[in-house]
Design a binder for these strands. Structure first.
Length: 289
DNA sequence: AGTTGTGTTGAAGA
DNA sequence: ATCTTCAACACAAC
């Protein structure tokens, strides 16, 4: 599931691999992913345009094109952007591209150089919108988005204000609500709260001053570490080479129910909050005991 | 073989 | 207004 670190990894890859490329053609077999435009219209609009840059806000991807247009993408749960080189593909790449999770290809961008970028999307929740670059920030998908948690303008002060405003919400819901903060999803919210040593159901408005600082710092620490490790491939996430990330090797609570806490040896537990699984260590995250 | 869990998001329901 | 549940979709694991 691509959250901020996975999306950042993809953005960095795209800027390395397809910046400057010129789109020669586009193909799609699932028009529902393309919002308010037919594949044929989309194809005509992007043809012969140059890729200027890739950027993101939260988990949302923007690919800016020459001619003032921007391709907005959301990978949702199972979307992968895979960039295949023009020439010979290495054995390792061949192996990864051949994996089943990379085989649900519904959209293809062909570049003049012979490179191609495919959009694989097992569950077909992914979204593609073509928008004038100047209006990209006005998309409803972006307009209601909270501050990106790795943006320099996301300060401790702002974090405190948001907690105060949403004081009744449980922390774990608060962290993953994209309208409040953007970038955090189900994997990292559990990991962040373990790092901070705070139980997930604590209310946003009931945190001690010290705990607020601990959670704030944990957000930056965990997400930056995850970017260094190129994301978490707990299940299907892959980078643009089809390669899994490495953060799943250092997960401390997520999907570790029943296993021993790596710090205190107590069993990791799982609770359902808002119909979703949250993982925590009952000792390390409880300051009373 | 039918049921459940998986998670992002927005919409519908309470 | 605000919170909770469900549907979109596909598949693996029971």
């Amino acid at each position: 599931m691509p959250e901020l670190p996975e999306v950042q990894t993809i953005i960095d890859d795209l800027n390395k691999k397809i910046k400057g490329e010129i789109i020669a053609d586009f193909w799609s077999d699932w028009k529902k992913s393309l919002k308010a435009i037919s594949p044929e219209q989309f194809r005509r609009a992007v043809k012969n345009k140059k890729i200027l840059r890739a950027r993101r806000k939260g988990k949302n991807i923007f690919i800016d094109l020459s001619g003032g247009k921007t391709i907005y993408l959301h990978l949702k749960m199972t979307g992968h952007l895979l960039v295949k080189p023009a020439g010979k593909i290495s054995d390792l790449e061949k192996k990864y591209f051949a994996e089943k999770v990379n085989q649900y290809i519904h959209h293809i961008f062909y570049f003049r150089s012979g490179k191609i970028m495919t959009f694989s999307d097992l569950r077909k929740f992914g979204k593609i919108i073509l928008v004038p670059t100047s209006q990209a920030e006005d998309l409803p998908e972006i307009k209601n988005l909270g501050e990106d948690v790795l943006s320099p303008s996301f300060t401790l002060e702002k974090f405190k204000n948001l907690l105060a405003k949403k004081r009744k919400l449980s922390l774990v819901v608060f962290l993953a609500d994209q309208q409040i903060l953007s970038g955090i999803g189900n994997i990292y919210r559990s990991e962040i709260l373990f790092e901070a040593g705070v139980l997930p159901w604590r209310k946003a408005g009931e945190l001690e001053e010290e705990e607020i600082g601990d959670v704030y710092r944990a957000i930056g620490k965990i997400l930056k570490k995850a970017i260094r490790l190129r994301g978490t491939s707990d299940s299907d996430y892959r980078d643009t080479s089809g390669t899994p990330g490495k953060f799943q090797n250092v997960l401390r609570v997520y999907r570790r129910e029943g296993e021993k806490c790596l710090v205190c040896k107590k069993e990791i537990r799982r609770v359902k909050i808002g119909a979703r699984s949250v993982f925590y260590c009952p000792r390390c995250q409880n300051r009373e005991s």
